[in-house]
Amino acid sequence: MKTFLLLTKRNTKLFFKDKGMFFTSLITPIILLVLYATFLFNVYYDSFLQAIPPEIQIMDSNLKGIVGGQLVSSLLAVCCVTVAFCSNMLMVQDKVTGARKDLTVTPVKNSTMALSYYVSSVISTLIICLIAAVAGFIYLANVGWFLSADDVLCILLDVVLLVLFGTALSSVINYFLSSQGQISAVGSIISAGYGFICGAYMPISQFSEGLQKVLSFLPGTYATSLLRNHAMRGAFAELNKLGFPEEVINNMKSTVDCNIEFFGKIVSTNAMYAILAVSVIVLIAAYILINMFVKIKNK
């Protein structure tokens, strides 16, 4: 157990000491912040404003709370996966630097080593994502706070679950990488691409129907939707109190991916949790099996 803990400590320390790896992991959240700061915030604010019937009075903070909720949920959705990928690159980095050789000449079990990479990556990613969540809450408190204690807890639970998912996914993919070039390629693809496919840069509802169907098979889609639901629930409830028609609110929810359909049926939040939990279990099982049966050359 002590071996595992010290190995995990080593991996976690290395991630935070490696500034390159650390800052690379923050590229996607930074892109998202820039997008919102430059134009996305105004685009969404205006489109929500236009959706409001003229006879209904709405507070500016309410609208900002909705757009802010969208920003925070998008930010957390990408953060949990891209940071996980980058922190988990340590397992590849160890092959590149030769440190892996030094670890495997010892009697330590492969499973202990694999688990230590996973757990340290979860810890590093959680630390960053929870800080991001707190920053998001502070931001929402400034622009318009409509979250209940339940919402906050649910968002934190979503973050934990998404971090477990992102880390498990990255563990399976990173296992097969062994060079600096591959690290850069996968890091760039994930950083640039994940924001699109999880609906963080643009809601999935805006994509073509075919693409929406494809994305409905990806667990990440449901993770983003869970975060959206919890980050925006309070603001939508406030609209309801103000007398907004249920149908309009539902349309707004669908526009921002709170309602995700799987072959025409809206997926409930419980089902989304189940999808995410099962994905985590399947990916971890795959990671364990890969470690047991696949041999990769240690460079």
């Binding site: 290395l14 000491k17 440190a99 010892t106």
Partner: peptide, 19 residues
């Protein structure tokens, strides 16, 4: 093949734990 970013102590501590 030790970890350049870590201190001498941390390096030796993590490697000793493997035994």
């Amino acid at each position: 093949v030790l970890d350049s970013a870590l201190t001498v102590y941390d390096n030796l501590q993590s490697r000793a734990a493997l035994y």
